[in-house]
Design a protein around this nucleic acid. Structure first.
Length: 308
RNA sequence: GCCGAGGUAGCUCAGUUGGUAGAGCAGGGGACUGAAAAUCCCCGUGUGGGGAGUUCAAUUCUCUCCCUCGGCA
């Protein structure tokens, strides 16, 4: 199987990645492939800032708005879907351009994941139930018996990672740390031209604030209300996105509107900060500022020429 | 005007039977291998509303002034 090559645009939420991708699409045939874990969801095009219809009309867009609110994605499944889309785009003679903000998904795609088989749902559920009942500290002690190496690496309050490590051990009989050691690296066949949109929190703040206002004007509240009518399960994975969670609490009468908007903004900002932290360490990124988007086609062509 | 409750970190508040104070949120930094817009870690000196008094020592007790919020007029 040949090399899978794609452009990957990185940057925090609201930094202008969509704009960069569409700019690129004007100078070469491009297929945009989403790598944002929230923009996968069908019920939340507005709150998750999916590209609008007129934007999606400019070139093929993939992996946007197809996942039901009740369904969870995983990094592994995402990587599989994205590879498929990359292959299709390449076969159609188009440049795949990954656009999104979920750092883990890019990592899974580029570096691969450990070859852990799917965990039986009842094992997973059992672990989660215990987590709910006994809390992370107790399970962390269990993990210290089963997989001391992973336990030492994880903080005793880190519910999600402790649950994952435990379900892997119980479901496969092999500690997560062993799976990691056995992992073959660098054989994904994915070669990314990573371009980062360089910005700061200070520059982002007014844009993020404004974007919330625009989302409300476009009907963000109704969007979440409709989703709730169809999927009235508080724990449904689709509701964990920023904006969805806050608006849902408001719709259910738990938080007044002003407080909701305030929380929404703060959580968005905090998220952008986390993304900044993640992407700053990402290896091999070419950083450009929004004013320099016109350099993007040149960058991509130069990178493409490397492999001819 | 009277009665009551308050004025402590950017915000909401806790506490100190008198020994100069700490949580949550916000903010800053960081981590990140199948939930990742998730999950988690580290970082807390602030004229304790102003002034005076009692005391070895006051944010804590007393007096007074100012301000806020209820209730009564």
């Amino acid at each position: 199987m040949g090399m899978l090559r794609a452009v990957c645009i990185l940057g925090p939420t609201g930094s202008g990645k969509t704009e960069a991708a569409l700019g690129l699409a004007r100078s070469m045939p491009v297929t945009v492939i989403n790598y944002d874990s929230r923009q996968l969801y069908a019920d939340f095009p507005i709150v998750t800032a999916q590209p609008e219809a007129h934007e999606q009309a400019q070139c093929p867009h993939r992996l946007y708005g197809f996942l039901p609110t009740a369904e969870a994605m995983s990094a592994a499944r995402f990587a599989e879907l994205a590879r498929k889309e990359m292959v299709e785009a390449q076969e159609a003679g188009r440049v795949p351009v990954l656009v999104g903000g979920t750092g883990l998904y890019v990592k899974a795609l580029e570096q691969g994941l450990a070859d852990i088989p799917p965990i039986a749902p009842d094992v997973r559920q059992w672990v989660l139930e215990r987590m709910g009942r006994e809390g992370p500290n107790v399970l962390h002690e269990d993990l210290a018996q089963a997989d001391p190496e992973t336990a030492a690496r994880l903080h005793k309050n880190d519910t999600q990672r402790i649950a994952r490590a435990l379900e892997v051990f119980l479901g496969t009989g092999k500690p997560l740390s062993v799976w990691f050691h056995e992992q073959k690296r660098g054989h994904t066949g994915v070669d990314l031209c990573k371009v980062g949109v360089s910005t700061t929190l200070g520059e982002l703040e007014p844009r993020l604030r404004k974007r919330i206002g625009v989302m409300l004007e476009r009907g963000a509240v109704d969007e979440v209300r409709r989703a709730w009518e169809q999927t009235p399960e508080r724990e449904a994975p689709g509701y964990s996105g920023i904006g969805c969670a806050e608006l849902l609490a408001h719709i259910l009468g738990e938080v007044d509107f002003e407080e909701t908007c305030d929380l929404w903004y703060r959580n968005t900002r905090a998220y952008a900060k986390r993304q900044l932290t993640w992407f700053a360490k990402e290896p091999g990124v070419r950083w450009i500022r929004a004013e320099g988007f016109d350099r993007l086609p040149g960058l991509v062509r130069a990178w493409g020429a490397d492999c001819e």
